[in-house]
Write a protein that binds this DNA or RNA. Structure first.
Length: 588
DNA sequence: GTAGGGTTAG
């Protein structure tokens, strides 16, 4: 065993030497040796060396927060920096909210707080999404007179955005006396991640007006906004800007570009970026591209890329495996999925609940329900809601009442109040004509006040975004849209279409159910696309939930009758409709 | 009590 020791000089420049040696500590044992030295020589009372060592001790890579805290306890009169070191350490710890107690104890003991104290405590708020605490800190920061600090202001607005308080993030941004590029970037990211993607783009445009030069962080943020919105036109413009500014030598920028093109439904363009990168690909690059193929339903390309990645010597991680399992799911590659799942251990990747969920889904869809159930029981962690929902969905396809009841019981026990779960179970009973049970489920739905996330779809035409809810009449051309839908209904019935009313979730009559189906948001968006874009051009629609089964059938027929390619991005994947077929081959 | 702290892809 190698003993790591330092020799310390105790001449008159001993303090300076001590401080220069602190950052060179390369292990916990060296930290401890220094700590012992500081204690025994009485240097402990010199706060600077002490708090530097505390700093080092409280954070990764080889620190020990508990040791740092025990050292802190021995300081007779700790100073601001000693507290700061501990609070900073707590941010990365498994218990970031403990930072609040430390902060309060500083307040109670009338210790002086500085901007760093606030900055670190704010970071802890972001980690645990503490909305109330961030408001309290904001008030303190104003009281202390720290608002002029641009760095602290950026931290504050960033934390507000991360805890979901976008209006306050904006407020802080607007009131900052000094904003620099990081402040703008922070708000752009906040808006992009917080479902205000178009506001993020507006902010980006305002930056140009105000003569600020966006950097690589900025473009990553706006690309992420385009990706969320599926805004291909803006995304392409930003790509042009990136090329002009030569920002495409940054790997993260390239990754964001790949993600943007893929999320807008242009997987070939995504691959174009991937293939022509002038910088070194990293793990995220591979993962993003594999996921892009997976969501596009191109399982074989995804798996080929995975092999290529291994040959390139890049070690897969948990996300890589999620992407390849997802690829197997969307392409129905059951055996490949099982095989890949079993090789995870070889690469030292521990399967998490999402990997199990993916495999359960894969087995379930293939009708291997018993295996799927066995897999769930073999898990060392607690199965999540998604997992049981996958199993329930598979039970619906294979009309397995017994298994469906098991899955539903687990969902109820987990407190799931999802409308779709109840409907699935009721569908399975209905398929077996067990009408009493159907009624029982319906009553349970009424009693439990089940939640339903409203579905919406949107589409861009001539630079304007149009959003549709079910039965929406807010669009200026709603009358034309509805008459187009009538026409569609008439023409598809000629082709033998019959409405699949089991997709309707409400307890209403058959005819009314059919009407509700007719006006699902994705159908409204497609009809609007048909009447407002020129013949033969593709129609891109984005939906917040999974596409409904009836809409899937109808859009297939529409693609044939109207000779249009229709691309629908739903929550899970892309559906590319052409000539009456969908790229998912009805397996999704 | 030199400073340290803010924005970044899947």
């Amino acid at each position: 065993m190698v003993r790591e020791t330092y020799t310390y000089t105790t001449k008159n420049n001993g303090m300076a030497n001590l401080e220069s040696v602190i950052p060179k500590c390369a292990s916990f044992s060296q930290i401890k040796q220094l700590q012992a030295y500081i204690f025994t020589t009485g240097t402990f009372k010199f706060s600077r060396a002490r708090s530097k060592l505390l700093d080092l001790c409280a954070i990764a890579p080889f620190g020990s927060l508990s040791f740092a805290i025990s050292v802190f306890r021995q300081i007779p009169r700790p100073l601001t920096n000693d507290f700061n070191a501990i609070i900073r350490g707590l941010i990365q710890s498994p218990q970031p909210s403990a930072a609040f107690a430390w902060y309060r104890s500083m307040q109670r003991g009338s210790f002086r707080m500085d901007a760093l104290t606030c900055s670190f405590t704010l970071k802890a708020c972001a980690r645990v999404l503490a909305a109330t605490e961030s408001l309290q800190l904001h008030a303190n920061i104003i009281r202390f007179g720290f608002m002029a600090d641009a760095l602290l202001g950026t931290t504050l607005l960033d934390v507000y955005a991360k805890v979901g308080n976008l209006s306050y993030a904006r407020l802080v941004f607007d009131e900052m006396q000094l904003r620099d590029i990081a402040s703008w970037n922070s708000l752009i990211f906040g808006l992009a991640q917080g479902s205000q993607a178009s506001e993020a783009l507006d902010l980006f445009k305002r930056m140009e007006v105000e003569g600020l030069k966006p950097n690589e962080v900025t473009v990553i943020g706006v690309l992420s906004a385009c990706s969320h919105m599926g805004d291909f036109k803006e995304g392409e413009k930003i790509h042009g800007f990136i090329r002009n500014q030569k920002l495409d030598t940054n790997v993260q920028v390239c990754n964001a570009l790949i993600d943007m093109y893929a999320n807008c439904g242009f997987v070939d363009r995504a691959y174009g970026v991937f293939d022509n990168m002038r910088c070194r690909k990293c793990l995220v690059t591979w993962n993003t591209m594999i996921m892009a193929f997976a969501r596009d339903g191109n399982g074989h390309k995804a798996l080929k890329l995975f092999e290529q990645m291994e040959r390139a010597g890049v070690q897969p991680d948990a996300v890589t495996y999620l992407a390849v399992l997802c690829a197997c799911n969307h392409a129905g590659l059951v055996e490949d999925g099982v095989r890949l799942f079993n090789t995870m251990g070889k690469h030292e990747v521990k399967p998490n609940v999402k990997h199990y969920g993916s495999l359960v889904d894969l087995l379930g869809r293939a009708g291997r329900l018993k295996e799927a159930y066995k897999l769930i029981n073999s898990m060392s962690m607690v199965p999540d809601v998604v997992l049981w929902q996958s199993l329930l969905g598979a039970c619906r396809i294979y009309k397995d009442v017994e298994m469906a009841e098991i899955a539903s019981r687990n969902l109820v026990e987990m407190g799931s109040n999802n409308c779709g779960d109840f409907v699935l179970l009721s569908n399975i009973y209905a398929a077996h004509e067990r009408w009493n049970d159907v009624g029982r489920v319906r009553d349970a739905m009424k009693n439990r006040d089940v939640k339903k996330v409203p579905g919406f779809s949107y589409i861009e035409v001539d630079g304007l975004w149009h959003k549709f809810f079910t039965g929406d009449k807010s669009n200026a051309r709603w009358k034309e849209i509805y008459s187009k839908l009538d026409e569609i209904g008439f023409r598809i019935k000629e082709l033998g279409y019959v409405a699949e009313t089991s997709f309707v979730l409400h307890d209403i009559g058959e005819e009314e159910k059919e009407n509700q189906l007719c006006y699902h948001s994705e159908k409204l968006a497609v009809a609007f696309g048909l009447i407002s874009t020129s013949e033969g051009t593709p129609i891109h629609v984005i939906k917040n939930l999974r596409i409904c089964g009836d809409c899937h059938v109808v859009i297939k027929l529409v693609s044939k009758i109207y000779e249009r390619q229709i691309i629908v991005r739903d929550r899970v994947r892309f559906h590319k409709f052409k000539d009456g077929f969908c790229s998912c081959r009805d397996y999704w």
